[in-house]
Design a protein around this nucleic acid. Structure first.
Length: 220
DNA sequence: GAGGAGATCGTCT
DNA sequence: GACGATCTCCTCT
């Protein structure tokens, strides 16, 4: 299993170094792989919510038929073509929001989709946001209902288009950011992406091997 | 546990 | 008007 380094506290979450613009100023495959094990942190007033990234997908801009950026820049996807490190949030299937982060220098249209988190802090608040009543000692099968899937993790962290689209995830002023706490996954696995109909064969989905919070069927 | 269908609405053509 | 980077509920095994 992948064990976190010590118990996370608000102080540790605030002290964890934020990922910089330079981190995201690379190709989407590199960013997608290196985001695994990092912390996605949300500040809700005085409270913090955090999840460890366990599953991502890379979308390679205008050369990738499955990417929103494939058809070029639109009023919807303009964030992907902007500077690296910005949140691209879109609404899908009439029900769900999905969170991406822009990669590469301006104009490339590359991005990484966050697909699943392991809830590590503020778990009860995240469950509440999802409409889930957790027992005192929740099982993993109950916990994974909170953030295992792009729509689920967005709901758990209160991520919406109106609130978060085009937000700078590297800014200290942001209430949504990514940080590293020294955790590095032992092994990661690459598989085809989920829920797409074009370029389905390319192994651009990345997950921490054996992690219970990866969405869909257990892999690795 | 696995598979199928419906819900629901913004974006693009 | 069609479709979609999803989720949940229901049925069947």
């Amino acid at each position: 299993m992948n064990v976190a380094p010590g118990q996370l506290t608000p102080a540790k979450l605030r002290a964890a170094p934020r990922l910089s613009r330079q981190f995201f100023n690379r190709d989407a495959v590199t960013v997608a792989r290196e985001l695994l094990g990092k912390l996605l942190i949300r500040r809700e007033g005085r409270k913090l919510l955090a999840g460890r990234v366990v599953e991502t997908e890379a979308y390679l801009g205008q050369e990738d038929p499955a990417a929103h950026a494939f058809a070029g820049r639109t009023t919807r996807n303009f964030v992907l073509f902007g500077p690296p490190g910005y949140a691209y949030v879109y609404f899908i299937y009439g029900n769900h929001f999905c969170l991406n982060v822009s990669c590469m220098p301006e104009g490339q249209g590359e991005g990484v989709l966050f697909r699943a988190l392991e809830p590590v802090f503020g778990v009860e608040a995240m469950a509440q946001a999802r409409g889930i009543d957790l027992p005192a000692s929740p099982r993993v099968t109950q916990l994974r209902m909170i953030t295992s899937g792009p729509g689920r993790m967005s709901e758990a962290l209160g991520i919406t288009c109106a609130r978060d689209n085009n937000k700078d995830l590297t800014s200290r002023a942001s209430d949504l950011w990514l940080a590293g706490d020294g955790f590095h996954p032992e092994r990661i696995v690459a598989t085809p992406r989920v829920g797409i109909t074009k370029a389905v064969e390319r192994p651009l989905r990345f997950a921490i091997t054996g992690n219970a919070y990866v969405s869909g069927r257990k892999i690795g």
